[in-house]
Design a protein around this nucleic acid. Structure first.
Lengths: 210, 210, 210, 210
DNA sequence: GATGAATGAGCCTTCATTCAT
DNA sequence: GATGAATGAAGGCTCATTCAT
């Protein structure tokens, strides 16, 4: 019991530091992150960050891990809770990705901050690729269950359609970030449906549901 | 004559520094930029960056300016050279944005690097918004010339469609960055056309042209 | 009985810490000593060093004490066990100092580490002077018993001869440290005898004994 | 001319930093060395040390280099200036090593500080071995020129005698450091001569000269 | 105009020390 | 007594910026 409390406390502190890192990135950008600021934001002392994560880089990496984990949980649960119909799964997935709390200004800002550093950091790149693969596979799997084998409208393979849908959602996040006042989740969702409707006629009808 | 040479020399050095900044960002990310690296990359002396741009921030800002200027030139010339038909203008615009040299791994990496810092820097935000406004207006203008006034398919206004198209193209850039091997300009262009075809029937046919 | 066990336990832990300090100095030099490394080397917990010795400085000082104590025991027992003849005492003393386990690479390294810090630390200096005085007095006492009062060969007083012998032995330790492969205890001992033989003819003969 | 001045200035600053490092080691020991203290001692700004030597370790290493260089110059010039007679060369050599400015409390303290760290630092060890090899060879060469080939008194080879003489001088330095008030250069020199006199009868006479 | 040595603020990191458990 | 998480001071190092040459 004594031991458990200590271990729990440690986990709690780590969690606080990761959340503080998130907040600092959101507020000051990637280049504005300082171990001191993180500690202060977490209401802890100077050395604690290095104590728990050894290096700043490690702390940043674990924060990115946490971000991906949350994102993955979101889409997995959206699919799991949407019922068996693929069209419902896809609909719910899109909504989940493009509405709060996933599409949230702070969160998107942090995503962007990491992505901006990704091409020049191997560790980020690898993490990113790993998660993207799973994410893309999940989307493609739903699409595949909606059509016959030799489906190829607009000369695009299913794979490319999935990629494009993902690109579109990422693009809306970016828009959310760079022009938050012009961005409306409803329109973003509609646009995704419109895109899909040119491949899958069923989506024509679902437009009203939004 | 002597004076002219001096002024030209000055401009040349400034240009070299901006290009070097671009290269360093592409190679090492935004957080990897130092005045020393930029100077070295430009094959110039240490203090030269501050000499010409006063501060690092100023150099970074002017580099972003140059980036936007190039981008704007690209889409303006695409529209200008496409002929009078809106559909041709839009087609060429999309191709211009999603093909080299505009959609280039290095260039996109630099865009991302700036965007990652944008939400936390007012100057970047303002610059970004200003350019985006013009860019969005140009796209919307073309779309508007293609349809009647009360156009409202999928419950989306023309404005939102333009935004969505832009978001889509930005999303493909992002994809280009994070998964360069899976990204194919052809598919990205097709996807944009597919998206537009669900609003503008004319695009159905243009699919073959790509 | 319980109390005794506790006290013993405490002594044991202190001893382990001192030994660990010794090991860490030998392995990483004086500047490489940290409380954490010492604790880890002793297979104990982080805070234990300060718990038993209050400060790092105190732990280092007590380790030096232990080192001197061991050294003193060595030469005292060498003298005590050598029989009554001064020449035998001196012979055994020299051998004891210049052969393992006293002349041991690790041990000498630790001596050097402390000596390197000695001139800038009053506490070490005092400890060092105190022990050296006794050590020098013991050597001088043996020498004195070997000669008549007005002994003054080479213009050197007995006192200076004792000092020189000690310096010589210290010098061999140093050599052991800086050129361990070239150092041979046998030669070092012979050299000491050669030095003494130029003051005390008796040593001429003892050369063969080594 | 302009360039020369700049280069000279740079060399001067480097020199000042090395001397300051020397002073700080002498005053506060190896573990008391701080880049800030060195800079302050040299009357320069904080970052200058790293600017010229990259790392603290590098600065310490170059300081050791300078120390060895000075030492080597001392014994080489002593030999060169002593005339052709080996006994004169050896005599002058010993005097040079055991008298100021070479045998100087500060300088010896710095030597000791480095030696204390030597066993745990490969770079120091290598530097040390390299110089020692030359130093020992020079001493041995003089000794060799004083005797016939099959010289082997006290069962010691010439090589071992040279080593022993060096060990003796090192030991006196150590004594100088740990018991400066008891150390007298005159006695140290006499002791060396006494040691040598037991191998080389010629040294018997030279005792008076000191 | 250009250079690069010098400055000094600020950051990451280490580490002795404390103290709640 | 022992543990190890937490603290906070201090050090090495980087880097934007300045300025004498």
């Amino acid at each position: 019991m004594n031991t458990i409390t200590r271990t729990e406390q440690k986990q709690l502190t780590r969690q606080k530091l990761i959340e503080a890192t998130f907040e600092v990135i959101a507020a000051e950008g990637f280049s504005g992150v300082t171990m001191a600021k993180v500690a202060q934001c977490a209401d802890l002392s100077r050395g604690i960050g290095n104590f728990h994560f050894q290096t700043k880089e490690q702390l940043l990496l674990e924060t990115l891990h946490a971000l991906y984990r949350e994102f993955e949980n979101a889409w997995r649960s959206a699919i799991a809770n949407a019922g068996p119909a693929p069209i419902d799964q896809l609909t719910d997935l899109i909504k989940r990705i493009l509405e709060p709390p996933i599409a949230d200004p702070k969160k998107v800002a942090v995503w962007m901050a990491y992505w901006g550093e990704t091409p020049s950091r191997k560790t980020y790149m690898e993490l990113c690729e790993m998660h993207d693969r799973e994410w893309e596979a999940a989307v493609e799997k739903i699409l595949r269950s909606m059509v016959s084998v030799d489906f190829n409208p607009h000369g695009m393979k299913l794979h490319a359609i999935a990629e494009s849908l993902i690109a579109m959602m990422d693009g809306f996040w970016l828009e959310y970030l760079l022009a938050p006042d012009r961005f409306k989740p409803q329109d973003a969702i509609k646009a995704c449906f419109a895109f899909l409707s040119s491949f899958f006629p069923d989506f024509q009808q679902s437009d009203k549901d939004i």
